[in-house]
């Protein structure tokens, strides 16, 4: 009956992922929030502010990448809450007193978060189509979009696992989701950055969201991309590696407490 260590490591990761997947539908509040909030933002911008914003293209086409990023970013940040819940509840303790790799707990949250995010972003795309979004991306562009969004989500998922691990209470974890709702506003997500005051403009141009949004926009509706794709990969590739290492390190430390 002895199976290899690798077999059980994969099996544990899968078991924990199944749990997180079940959570998506058992507690649909998170999923609804991850969809409802970005949809509300999108509708508000397209119908209320959009008419007043000059972007050189149909506003709905301009704004969709920003909404997608807000959606994915916010969706990822919810992971912090569920990780903290497991840490302060008894599950983490119990896993530690068993003969298995407790890090499968993290794997489960990252996978579950990714699937929830994928569902939410798909719904957002569909709603965007309904209110007039018309992308002209071909097959390769769509592959690029999926690839970049996956990179973005995975890097943020691990970042928020790390945040969830250091957070001592669920309330604090809740507060950690806040920046993800606001960071996109200080980028080219909703308005062209040239319209902002100089200092904010500089920040907006150089924060990681802007190259990502510019790249997505380029892939979706054919605006120029330039170096933005490389910047995006560099930013979020690094974030992925750093967050992953950070999570594993914090996890090991928490295990010794």
């Amino acid at each position: 009956m002895r199976k290899s260590k690798l077999y059980w490591a994969l099996s544990d990761g899968w078991t924990m992922s199944q749990r997180s997947l079940k959570h998506i539908f058992r507690e649909p509040e998170s999923l609804l929030m991850a969809i409802g909030l970005p949809v509300a933002i999108m509708v508000m911008f397209v119908y209320i502010f959009g008419g007043a914003i000059e972007t050189g293209t149909e506003y709905v086409n301009y704004v969709v990448p920003g909404v997608i990023i807000t959606c994915a970013g916010f969706g990822s940040s919810l992971i912090a809450i569920s990780v903290t819940q497991d840490m302060v509840g008894g599950l983490f303790e119990r896993l530690r007193s068993m003969a298995l790799l407790p890090s499968s707990l993290m794997v489960g949250h990252v996978t579950g978060g990714f699937v929830r995010n994928a569902i939410a972003t798909t719904v957002i795309f569909l709603v965007a189509m309904l209110i007039g979004f018309r992308p002209n991306a071909g097959f390769t562009e769509w592959l690029g979009i999926i690839g970049l969004l996956s990179l973005f989500m995975f890097s943020l998922n691990w970042l928020f696992v790390a945040i969830g691990l250091i957070t001592k209470s669920v309330e604090t974890a809740n507060a950690a989701t806040f920046p993800m709702l606001f960071l996109p506003y200080v980028s080219s997500a909703f308005v062209p950055t040239e319209t902002m005051p100089t200092w904010l403009h500089t920040f907006a141009d150089n924060q990681p969201m802007t190259p990502l949004i510019e790249t997505l926009r380029g892939l979706l509706i054919g605006t120029p991309i330039g170096n933005n794709a490389w910047f995006t990969i560099l930013w979020f590739g690094s974030l992925l590696i750093i967050s992953f290492i950070l999570s594993v390190a914090i996890f090991k430390r928490r295990k010794k407490e």
Partner: peptide
């Protein structure tokens, strides 16, 4: 050799 049941029930509420 052991199993632990802590002070706070470590069961998953949603399952």
């Amino acid at each position: 050799q052991i199993s632990l049941t802590g002070q706070y029930a470590s069961v998953d509420e949603l399952l």
